[in-house]
């Protein structure tokens, strides 16, 4: 049996072996990519990546939940008191310090992603000590700017990318 040749390949073969091996490896990598990429969001999902919402009919003091990218987004038409409460909090008291102004585009409209930053539950509106949101899963409490105040969640409710197309129409995403 010529198994000795397996173990010690003569040097003159090395270059050819390495080249063929390297080209083969490139080929395998090129095949793997489509098999991985197929699990990414597809064209029909990406086409729904932004959504337009008419907010003209939302009365002051009410929260509307809309579906965006498969999950909830809270659109809150804030009252004067809620705005003041949110703006008057000293930054030092906050776990994740952000001013209210940096979280809204228009003071009366708060738009946040309705997913608790602890473990992904959907918080309940107008509840909890600050009358912002209360997460029913593990008791995280958010204020009227969607900022975390008590409980296990580490971060404020995220603000999605959005733009006011008109005074009453918002494009989220």
């Amino acid at each position: 049996m010529a198994s000795a040749a397996t173990v010690e390949a003569p040097n003159r073969r090395d270059f050819l072996f390495l080249t063929a091996g390297a080209v083969g490896a490139v080929g395998v990598a090129a095949v793997v990519w489509p098999l991985v990429d197929q699990m990414n969001p597809d064209a029909s999902t990406l086409a729904l990546a932004s959504t337009e919402v008419d907010i003209g009919a939302i009365p002051e003091g009410q929260i509307v939940t809309v579906k965006w990218r498969g999950g909830p987004v809270f659109i809150r038409h804030r009252t004067k008191k809620e705005i003041e409460d949110a703006e008057n909090v000293p930054l030092g008291e906050l776990r994740d310090p952000q001013t209210d102004q940096s979280r809204v585009k228009k003071r009366e409209w708060l738009i946040v992603i309705g997913v608790c930053t602890h473990l992904g539950c959907v918080p309940l509106g107008q509840e909890g000590k600050y009358e912002g949101w209360l997460c029913p899963c593990h008791g995280s409490i958010y204020d009227t700017s969607g900022r975390i105040r008590q409980g296990p969640a580490p971060l404020n409710l995220a603000v999605p990318e959005y733009a006011f197309l008109t005074d009453t129409r918002v494009k989220i995403g």
């Binding site: 010529a2 040749a5 003569p10 003159r12 073969r13 050819l16 072996f17 080249t19 063929a20 080209v23 083969g24 490139v26 080929g27 090129a30």
Partner: peptide, 21 residues
């Protein structure tokens, strides 16, 4: 194009291996 290059390389590799036998 890639497969032709690969097959060519493998052909010569195979020939080398065969010579060693």
């Amino acid at each position: 194009l890639f497969l032709f290059v690969l097959a060519g390389l493998l052909y010569f590799t195979k020939k080398r291996v065969g010579e060693a036998a």
